[in-house]
Amino acid sequence: MPFEEISHTADWSIRVWADDLRGLLAESARGMWMLTNAEQAEGPRARREMSLEAYDAEGLLVAFLEELLYLSESEKIVFNEFKGLKVEDLRLSGIMEGGAVRSMEKEIKAVTFHNLEIRETGRGLEVEIVFDV
């Protein structure tokens, strides 16, 4: 798993790494779902196109994860597979696929910008994300 939970006094935080921004977005989503212990029900998969934009890469990461949280609450679908993700001029597009929420043990209130910085490291791109819980 290219993500790990890191210690935070009150909230939740994960460190994520990937070769490029598209990978970083997808792995951040999987890391987020790991924290909530989300489980999907058997049955047909939902498929949705997405299109998001932001001022910078960090803003795009927050907007992407917020979109997934919103859909999990409003439509009760956990989107965890991403196809054809494309980032052009700070615009993200692609297809996401997911299943209905069977159970979700923990609630994430929001994805924060706290000390959010996507850095280049020996493992590719790396970021630490703090979630408000």
């Binding site: 803003g59 917020e66 706290h114």
Partner: peptide
Amino acid sequence: REFQGAVRRYNIQLPDRE
């Protein structure tokens, strides 16, 4: 999210984007 743009417009420098 909206204020990420506002701080640019009002030229506000902060040590943390949150």
